[in-house]
Design a protein around this nucleic acid. Structure first.
Lengths: 211, 211
DNA sequence: ATGTGTGAAGAGCTTCACAGCC
DNA sequence: GGCTGTGAAGCTCTTCACACAT
């Protein structure tokens, strides 16, 4: 098992497991079974066991999983033992909402830098984070050891911004534009595309519309 | 082919196809091949042909697809021939960003109603949309024939809000909370979970971190 | 008795490759 | 020649079911 390729879906589920384990840990639970986790996360217990098995044998047969141990192991796999440093590019409506989103710290992410190209915004602060000139992005991002960039720029600038940042050595991007970019294979871009999600919902909706 | 079940992934790709076709149509292109679309959307041409084939034979062998016809057919499949009416619940940071997001109209969605429970916000307007009392949600949503609700409430209220709205007959939700809810099967909730996406990016990132 | 770990079977989606039509 | 439509093959992920450990 150990040397099989790990499904992307398995990786996607690790963070939800982690959230549940943080919660269980805070409540003082020492042991959790795949069945219990299944009910909390709404994920089939066979999937949970198989997901963990990709990384080793984390549980005890007949008993279950040790909550703090399992939590530590998942944190390590996801490289979330320390805060992940995140930079935000673009402080329009979405960017400002993200800067004000106070859940990130409790989830292990910290926005340490924000950038914009608008001289009227540069120098001001949102939620205690200074907005810097995008011109200084390279130096500041390297200085701060930022690992992930959230790109919340207007659609027609996103591609340019991601290309620029990838040249600075950033290889992980969360974008809010529908982006089909030509980028090196080692660069990973996740697009949060609200319209596509709404379109899927429209397709699956069974609501009868009177016209 | 016609009676096979349609993969979710196929549905996910229809909107990106539609975007590309709108663009081609505006440029006056009459014909497009799966190869050309492939380059625009960055999706393998065999997938594109198969995706369309689930809904019928849309192209001409040796020629390609008629752009306006194909566009109309995809619009119809996605039920996006008319504006889809959307309601927003919660006008915090994310909610306000969504109300200000001016791309929705051009993509076929219209936010027609916004709700909050905060008496200080009720009555004010954002981007021309009035914030209404959540107490009036049932009547107003039914009156307006809203089909999809975007739920941008604090995490601990999301479940309650979605349950309430599903009782009003809404069956399609876009949520910004990590939500594992017990809901009837016919209700579809899509969660935009930024932290989980960041966690995946952290896992796949190869950036060396000096500590 | 309880609950994990995992081969094997099954389901779902993608890619191939080519017949069929323009 | 060019391009679609699609069975068949291939790949990926999920579910089953049970051996194994406590």
């Amino acid at each position: 098992m150990r040397f099989k390729t790990i499904p992307d879906e398995t990786i996607s589920r690790l963070f939800p497991y982690m959230r549940a384990l943080v919660c269980l840990n805070e409540k003082g639970a020492e042991i959790v079974s795949s069945n219990r986790l299944s009910k909390i996360c709404m994920i089939n217990s066979a999937i949970i066991r198989k997901d963990f098995s990709y990384f080793g044998e984390f549980g005890k047969r007949g008993v279950g999983y040790n909550v703090p141990e399992l939590l530590a192991k998942i944190r390590k796999i996801l490289k979330l033992e320390e805060y992940k440093k995140v930079a935000l590019i673009g402080t329009g409506n979405i960017g400002r909402a993200i800067l004000s989103y106070n859940y990130f710290p409790s989830e292990g992410f910290k926005i340490v830098l924000a950038f914009d190209k608008d001289v009227n915004k540069i120098g001001s602060e949102i939620n205690g984070i200074r907005i810097n000139d995008i011109q200084n992005a390279q130096r500041m991002i390297l200085d701060q050891n930022v690992e992930i960039c959230i790109v919340a720029t207007p659609v027609d600038e996103t591609s340019k911004v991601i290309n620029m940042l990838s040249e600075f050595g950033i290889d992980a991007f969360l974008s809010f534009s529908p982006c089909r970019l030509n980028l090196p294979d080692n660069v990973k871009v996740t697009c949060m595309d609200l319209s596509t999600e709404l379109a899927k919902l429209a397709y699956y909706s069974n609501k009868e519309i009177e016209n």
